[in-house]
Design a protein around this nucleic acid. Structure first.
Lengths: 209, 209, 209, 209
DNA sequence: AATGAATGAGACTTCATTCAT
DNA sequence: TATGAATGAAGTCTCATTCAT
């Protein structure tokens, strides 16, 4: 029906505007930090007036929450798409999508910081993104342990450890800590190697480190 | 001599004031973030007037730099004190001192964020604190690899991985991600176990994960 | 077209606001001096909020520069309009427009002082206002000397002397130094008389003073 | 008596301190302007603590008044010393002492500005310095007119005109308006020449300018 | 629905003045 | 008497938010 179509078209336009504003907000927030970012700059980057921005998002904070929500949605979609992969590929894919691009790393740094200061951001980033990733890792680990492929370690803790390592690397990268000439692939492989096989020299097993 | 004593007393008083202000600043910055923290609140917490604060630190930013510098000094002292320990104990000690107490974890989150936005903070946190820790780990790893105790992995990368894991755990903790009932000690032991021995079940070695 | 009209109307409104603020600023600056003037008082006199003031002038200093620029524009227009007058009339007109009204005298005192402390004010007041007046006087004097109407004095120096005298009178007036019952016209005539004919009694020429 | 001597010595010490502070204040005030000058900087330049400064002058404004008073005293002494000179020499001497040195010109600019804003400064600068100079010029002019050496111009107005010209030149100088290669002496001679003999070419007298 | 000028609360910072030592 | 740390009032400027057009 015409009415429905009109409404739909409007809704599409509204959604597009919101997305455009969220994009600009994500960019400015992740570069300058939430507090230093100004609604003026976000509006300019989105090529709308400041008044228009506030027609779509009632407060600056709602913009941040919107960015967090969009991020959580991306993560959810990503998790869906890796369900069929091997554990190693899944791990690589999740990490890559989260941290390979600068934009994602910067958003990660942003949420890492803002989650502590805002309950809504925490809700979207920690509960709906981070926890989902951890949960899917934990399930896979449990299965691998049950199958006898992995040692009977605590799967919850191990999933968190894997996330922690990846997050830590992203942070180090973002802080400008050099990784030598190592490519992301080599780095991923090396980390996986250590996680799977350990550091200990098996020829000289049980030596005290 | 009297002159010396007087000077010393004054210098002591000034140093004490500075420390008192840095303490207050560390507290407020780490709870609210640099931008949301106000000099008013810091001054109140330090129990001095706002004017007095600016007698000791010319700008709010200098206060942040002061906090970062104090942190770097603590880390340097800490590194000195762990030189005699075994690798495992050293690792545990460095991690614990950096992340066991909430105060330290919050400062870590603060610097993690602000290092990207301020060159001085980067200087103190990344170069004078983080890099020192990584370097000392790298040296130890190199020695252990040379001694044949560990496999010939890349020591630079492995040192970064260990730091990354610890940092990631601190972040997860700070984000309120539950670690189950695991105590810090158990957690440390489990992580060390995986790092040393790997996840792979040796009985079924070379199975695809 | 509507677009053009709308733009023009907005631009007119903005120009009007700026003028209104510059007017208020000129008034407050010239009465209290730049440093003692507050943006609060200027905004109140212009009947806008302090925030609005800063939408039009980024800093208090820019407001001062704006006032100086407006003054220089007035002088430039004034110089255009006196090109056709006789030397005497031109002199009287330039002096009158600069110093007859209290507002102009106070602005003169303001720029006299602030030109030394601010390069932009110097640019507008000294270079674009004062120098123009001196130059036009100098040109006229040169012509009159060439025509044999005036003695072959140094025209550059004489132009400066005439300006100096006028400026000095304005200052004396502003300092409240009484000129007796002398009207501005009488004063102007007397000064011109002395400048043209000198003080020396020609009947007793060459007497030592 | 010992008592008297002690008192006298203290008074001398106090007077010396005051002079030292006034000197520093004159320097800072005349360079930065009264408002931009800080008591801290004045104290440092006088090589005493800020607290000590306030032991000798209750407020910053009293310092300014003190500087003005000292200036008026200098002028008074100067006037005494030129009583025996010829009119021309007297004129030259008074002008030179007031404006030849940068320090004096800057103080002149300071008082010119601050006299309008502070009654005490006005009292000392305008009434006790400027007026005295004008008065002595006026008396001399009256005598010269009575003696028939000068034309019967209004002596009050003429004295003000001479002061105005000198003040105006000082201001021009301070504003950086170039006087060509003219030395102060040449300039003084040229001005005196015009004042005495006028600009008009006597060969072509009564021509319209 | 879009605009952007207006607002005003609140931030950082300065500095004359006070006062305990 | 000299000191300089402490004070707090007041100033400039920023920016999220509102609102008339």
């Amino acid at each position: 029906m015409l009415e429905t179509e009109t409404t739909t078209r409007r809704e599409r336009r509204i959604a597009a505007r919101k997305a455009q504003l969220l994009d600009a907000a994500a960019q400015v927030f992740s570069h300058k930090g939430y507090e230093k970012a100004t609604t003026k700059e976000i509006a300019e980057l989105a090529d709308v007036s400041e008044g228009t921005l506030f027609n779509y998002f009632a407060t600056k904070r709602e913009l941040l929450i919107g960015v967090a929500k969009a991020y959580a949605d991306e993560v959810a979609a990503d998790i869906e798409s890796v369900q069929g992969e091997t554990f190693e590929d899944m791990l690589a894919q999740l990490a890559a999508n989260r941290f390979r691009r600068g934009r994602e790393r910067r958003l990660f740094m942003l949420f890492l910081y803002e989650s502590r200061l805002n309950a809504d951001v925490h809700q979207y980033y920690v509960e709906e993104a981070l926890h989902r990733i951890i949960d899917v890792l934990e399930q896979r680990l449990t299965a691998l342990i049950d199958a006898g492929v992995m040692r009977p370690v605590d799967p919850a803790l191990t999933a968190r450890m894997m996330s922690a390592t990846t997050m830590g690397f992203a942070a180090l990268f973002e802080l400008g800590v050099s990784m030598g000439t190592t490519s992301p692939e080599t780095l991923g492989a090396a980390v996986t190697d250590i996680h799977l096989n350990g550091l200990r020299n098996q020829n000289g097993a049980n030596q005290d480190v």
